[in-house]
Simulated assay, not measured.
Amino acid sequence: MCAHVLVAEDDRRQAELLRQYLRAEGHEVVVVHDGHSALSTARLQPPDLLILDVMMPGLSGLEVCRALRRDSDVLVLMLTARSGEEDLLLGLDLGADDYLTKPYSPRELAARVRTLLRRRRAAPQPQDGVLTVGPLTIDPARHRIACAGEPVECTPGEFAILAAMAGAPDRVFTRAQLLDHTRGIDRNSTVRTIDMHVMNLRRKIEPDPRRPARLVTVYGVGYKLAGGSD
């Protein structure tokens, strides 16, 4: 599962260690040490995955992620020395696919890289705009959802949430991200509204809503739609 990986890390010793581990995994690795270089390199030579340190000179990793997400769906793994929830949630809100808090094991990072690449390559490809995730089928054009072949009636807000998550199975969405997907549908939506939508969806798509296996809570972060079949 070889890939082109861009590492943006201002700690040169740490960056070199990452280069060695990732090359040993068979990846092609390019290393840069500041935010401006990370952004320009990612745009000139788009990588399969970007490992992005939050604290860098020039542009921060958060600023780089925000800029890239305007026109790119490159996989982003954030590295942060801060353990605060605010940094984590902000990175995920900007579209990061995963994160690691320093200090971390390079072996763990290599495993996260494998998981992200495997998930991207296994992601369902829409046929005529229809998304299939496990037993769920979501047809955005016709505004239809089916679970194990049975139609599922959803409100517009519920549909918007499920369709967004079906486009990226196993990716964790924060409540703020899901709230963005309901803008213009539920004008008075709050993060509490998102929780209510999720609770209602579980009643409709889970075999046992009290023990959700499809629409899963990631505690302290948000929700994900499990990509496995049942």
Results as ranks from 00 to 15, higher is better:
76 V>H: 03
76 V>F: 12
77 L>T: 04
78 M>F: 12
79 L>P: 00
79 L>S: 06
79 L>Q: 04
80 T>S: 10
80 T>N: 06
81 A>L: 05
82 R>A: 06
82 R>E: 09
83 S>L: 10
83 S>C: 13
83 S>W: 00
84 G>H: 09
84 G>N: 14
84 G>Q: 10
84 G>V: 10
87 D>E: 07
88 L>T: 00
88 L>P: 06
88 L>G: 02
89 L>I: 08
90 L>M: 11
90 L>E: 03
90 L>W: 08
91 G>C: 05
91 G>T: 10
91 G>D: 14
92 L>K: 10
92 L>F: 14
92 L>V: 10
93 D>H: 13
94 L>T: 02
94 L>E: 01
95 G>I: 07
95 G>L: 04
95 G>W: 09
96 A>M: 10
97 D>G: 09
97 D>Y: 02
97 D>P: 05
97 D>W: 15
98 D>H: 14
99 Y>D: 05
100 L>T: 05
101 T>R: 08
101 T>N: 13
104 Y>G: 00
104 Y>W: 03
104 Y>R: 00
108 E>V: 11
109 L>H: 08
109 L>K: 08
110 A>S: 12
111 A>Q: 11
111 A>S: 13
112 R>K: 05
113 V>N: 06
113 V>K: 12
114 R>N: 08
114 R>D: 07
114 R>I: 06
115 T>G: 14
116 L>V: 15
116 L>D: 05
116 L>G: 09
117 L>H: 09
117 L>R: 00
118 R>L: 15
118 R>S: 12
119 R>A: 15
119 R>H: 15
120 R>P: 06
121 R>N: 03
121 R>A: 13
121 R>I: 03
122 A>D: 09
122 A>V: 07
122 A>S: 14
122 A>I: 04
124 P>V: 02
124 P>T: 01
124 P>S: 04
125 Q>W: 15
126 P>W: 05
126 P>G: 11
126 P>I: 02
127 Q>G: 01
127 Q>M: 01
127 Q>H: 13
128 D>E: 14
128 D>C: 05
128 D>T: 02
128 D>G: 08
129 G>N: 08
129 G>Y: 11
129 G>E: 07
130 V>L: 05
131 L>C: 06
131 L>R: 08
133 V>M: 07
135 P>T: 00
135 P>V: 00
